[in-house]
Computed example of a mutant assay.
Amino acid sequence: MIQQRQNFDWMLKELYDSVPGIEMIVVLSADGLRIARYSGDPDAADRVAAACAGLQSLAAAVAQELPVGNGEMKMVVVELDKGYFYLMAAGANAYLAVLSDIRCEPGAMSHYMRDLVLRIGEHLTSPPRRNGQTV
């Protein structure tokens, strides 16, 4: 896992440098554990990752109510008082989350996030866990 985190640094930095206004980028597992982060406080990144687990679960439950599609959450955008929060499915049991200020245009951000996920999606995965252990 340490090697994987080192490999993420340059990829997340590229996203950070491409879009003005990004405050924090977090890669997380479906169960809310931080896999990697770029910028921001590590404790805050852990809290964001944990909150994302609930948000992705909620979005997936709502998506299953649509009569078309497979019920999978692709992306959630939340407009905040002074910025935006983005959460995108990024691979098997993995997600990409970004917090930004108001300078960040949501259309541009979703484009850059989708591009990152398409280029490195197979690396943005987290194996399933059982009783806290990777299976």
Rank of each mutant, 00 (worst) to 15 (best):
E105N: 15
E65G: 07
C104A: 15
L80M: 13
L96Y: 01
V62Y: 03
N131L: 06
Q3N: 15
V19I: 15
L33Q: 06
P128L: 11
N131I: 11
L80A: 14
M88W: 01
N70P: 08
L80T: 13
L99T: 10
G54K: 03
I25V: 09
N93V: 08
M113G: 07
E72V: 14
D17P: 06
L15M: 07
A92E: 14
F8D: 02
S126T: 02
R47V: 15
V78P: 01
M75S: 09
N7M: 07
S29C: 05
A51V: 08
S100R: 03
W10C: 10
L28S: 12
P20L: 06
L58S: 04
C104Y: 03
A50L: 08
G54F: 04
D9T: 12
P42D: 12
E72M: 13
E72K: 15
R130Y: 13
N93R: 10
Q64P: 04
A89G: 12
W10F: 14
I102V: 15
V76Q: 09
N70C: 12
W10T: 14
M1K: 03
G40A: 05
P106K: 03
L116E: 05
V27F: 02
Q6Y: 07
A30I: 02
M75R: 11
A97S: 09
P67K: 07
E14Q: 01
Q56L: 03
A61E: 07
M109C: 12
T125L: 05
L99W: 09
L118K: 07
D46Y: 02
Y112N: 12
D41I: 06
A92V: 10
E72A: 15
A50P: 03
L80R: 11
M11I: 15
P42A: 09
R37L: 09
G21A: 08
W10K: 11
A45L: 09
Y95Q: 10
Y16R: 02
A97Q: 00
C52T: 10
D81E: 15
I22D: 11
M11R: 15
G132I: 04
A63C: 10
A92L: 08
V62A: 11
L28K: 01
I102M: 08
L124S: 00
I22A: 02
Y112K: 14
Y95H: 06
R34D: 03
L99S: 04
G121H: 03
Q56F: 03
A53E: 13
L118V: 12
V135E: 04
N7A: 14
V77P: 01
E122D: 14
C52M: 09
A97H: 05
G83D: 09
A51S: 15
L118I: 07
N93K: 09
L116G: 00
L58Y: 12
I35M: 04
L87E: 04
R129N: 02
A94Y: 01
I22H: 02
R119N: 06
N70Y: 14
R5E: 13
N7H: 10
S57R: 13
L96D: 02
A30W: 11
I35Q: 00
A63P: 01
A63V: 05
